[in-house]
């Protein structure tokens, strides 16, 4: 029973969502919207599990004074402060503590993490530069042409570069994306079918 019922729910859920696609009727649209809403709601509830796991992970570290436990304490403090600010001090209004912490702490870190990509893309390019295989060279050449073609100075040095760069983006790039997209489509369809039909059930783990 512990496996049969979940498998039945998966099957029914999957089949209903496929069938609703072919039915324009209002009832079908309501089911579609309802399911999306339900998924969001369940997603909201499970954050409790997430927070629980995070808190356990860090309190364990602090309790046992494992290496770097001080940082775990910082994480816990951040969590508690932000939660209290959000739940008891004016919610998500922009001039209240919650959003102030968001604007002056979370947001700058987020933006800076994102900006690290500028350095990492350079180091990745350097790595590609050192690769000696034919396909790596193809990748590198295409990357260099498109990169130079997209900066204004590139066209000043050698004007056809912009045309070649655009052609690379519009043709070979587009073509390969299509092939990958079609492959992904089929792979995804067959995996989704295996899940719905209960052929792929490793996600259920063990048990009866």
């Amino acid at each position: 029973m512990r496996r049969q019922i979940p498998l039945a729910i998966t099957f029914i859920g999957g089949v209903v969502m496929i069938i609703q696609y072919f039915i324009p009727h209002q009832i079908s649209q309501e089911i579609y919207r309802g399911v999306l809403d339900w998924q969001m709601i369940v997603g909201g509830f499970v954050l409790v599990l997430g927070i629980g796991s995070l808190v356990t992970h860090h309190t364990e570290k602090v309790k046992r004074q494992k290496e770097g436990w001080g940082y775990s304490l910082v994480a816990l403090l951040g969590l508690v402060m932000m939660a209290i600010a959000g739940l008891f001090f004016g919610g998500m209004a922009s001039d209240k503590p919650f959003m102030q912490i968001f604007i002056y702490a979370q947001n700058p870190i987020q933006a800076t993490m994102f900006s690290l990509l500028a350095f990492f893309i350079a180091s990745a390019a350097y790595r590609a530069f050192r690769a000696r295989s034919f396909i790596a060279t193809l990748l590198l050449l295409a990357a260099i042409i498109v990169m130079i073609g997209r900066v204004p100075i590139g066209a000043k040095i050698w004007s056809p570069i912009r045309v070649i760069s655009n052609w690379l983006l519009d043709y070979p790039n587009m073509v390969a994306k299509r092939a990958i997209g079609l492959g992904v489509g089929l792979g995804m369809l067959s995996t989704a079918l295996k899940i719905i039909l209960g052929i792929e059930r490793s996600y259920l783990g063990g048990g009866k």
């Binding site: 709601i41 940082y71 910082v74 951040g78 508690v80 402060m81 979370q106």
Partner: peptide, 21 residues
């Protein structure tokens, strides 16, 4: 990093309560 992890976890938690639940 630790501040980010703690604060962002609470951010999503509070966000979910006000915007989903």
């Amino acid at each position: 990093e630790s501040i980010f992890i703690g604060v962002s976890a609470a951010y999503w938690f509070v966000y979910m309560i006000y915007n989903v639940i």
